[in-house]
Simulated scan of single mutants.
Amino acid sequence: MSSIESEILNCTGAKAIHDTTQVQTLWSGYGTIKCYYLEGGKHSSVIVKHIELPKSDNHPRGWNTDLSHQRKVKSYAIESNWYKHYASLTNPNCKVPQLLYEEAGENTRLLIMEDLNALGFPIRRTPQTVSLLAAKNCLSWLAHFHAVFMKVSPKGLWKKGTYWYLDTRPDELAKMTNKPLQNVAPEIDKKLNEAKFQSLVHGDAKLANFCFGSENQVAAVDFQYVGKGCGIKDVAYFISSCFEEEACEQFEGELLDHYFKSLEEAMGNTIEFQEVKEEWTSLYKFAWADLYRFLDGWSTGHWKMHGYSEKLTQAVIEELDSE
């Protein structure tokens, strides 16, 4: 029996492991996520995220730099802190898997967590299969998450959440082809970072990181880039992961209205909520422009760089140039 299997049995009280399946390999070969099926004990199955730092980088887009490596190493430590100290603060309206066991070595890290499939969230959606209702439920999840962690200090997390934020992406900034956007990138970053209302942001709130139940109830995974930020960054990024140009344009108002109604439900109809809504609504286009800035340097021609995102980005450039 391996040490991982021993820890699984110890932390779950299960009598035996009767099967194992690989869920996925981690980005750039940094380890695996597996599901272990158990006999006896409280849990019928658990998810094990086993990080093993590679001897050589193999990034699919060629970003094999020490900066990239260190960012990923830090992200796994932050994810562990999230599950240890913050995950238990969530509620059923922003469901996440709870941590059962954590261990860190010099070049390895082990997380044993609840299996969301076993808890009633076995369905995954793609942009081709997601309904407007399912997308709205994800936005409700984000709203309740942002409300729970409004003004919470990001101790042990990223001081600035999201994986694409400017300070950690100098290589991509230097490679940008959109020079007007490159010139105002620091100002966009400043606008978002100096927003009066800051919460914790998921930081990688794409459709692929949400798990669905049979009635489109939602839970979320993957907290490597959780940290301080204004929640509208999660909102813009989620919408970008779900919908192509025409749908982004068509459903913009409906999706934002739904998000803010969910945030109001979570925060209460207070003066503070109205201030949050006003500020974050005004920053929606800045969140899109910030993402567009990253994509322009990371993967020019990416499918998210469509007319809708370009239009919002151009509006931001013109607004900042006129100030």
Rank of each mutant, 00 (worst) to 15 (best):
T25N: 10
S28T: 04
S28F: 03
T32H: 06
K34V: 00
C35Q: 03
Y36K: 00
Y37E: 04
L38A: 14
L38I: 14
L38V: 07
E39R: 01
E39Y: 03
G40T: 11
G40F: 05
G41P: 03
K42E: 13
H43R: 09
S44F: 09
I47D: 06
H50V: 10
I51Y: 14
I51R: 00
E52L: 11
K55V: 10
S56P: 02
D57A: 10
D57N: 13
N64P: 06
N64H: 11
N64A: 07
L67N: 14
S68K: 02
S75L: 11
A77N: 14
I78H: 10
E79H: 12
E79C: 07
S80M: 15
W82V: 09
W82I: 08
Y83R: 09
K84T: 07
A87E: 03
S88N: 01
L89E: 02
L89G: 07
T90N: 04
T90F: 06
P92M: 04
P92A: 14
V96M: 02
V96T: 07
P97C: 07
Q98F: 00
L99V: 03
E102W: 05
A104P: 01
G105I: 07
G105L: 01
E106N: 12
E106P: 14
L110P: 01
I112S: 05
I112K: 01
M113E: 06
A118H: 10
L119V: 06
R124Y: 12
R124S: 14
R124I: 09
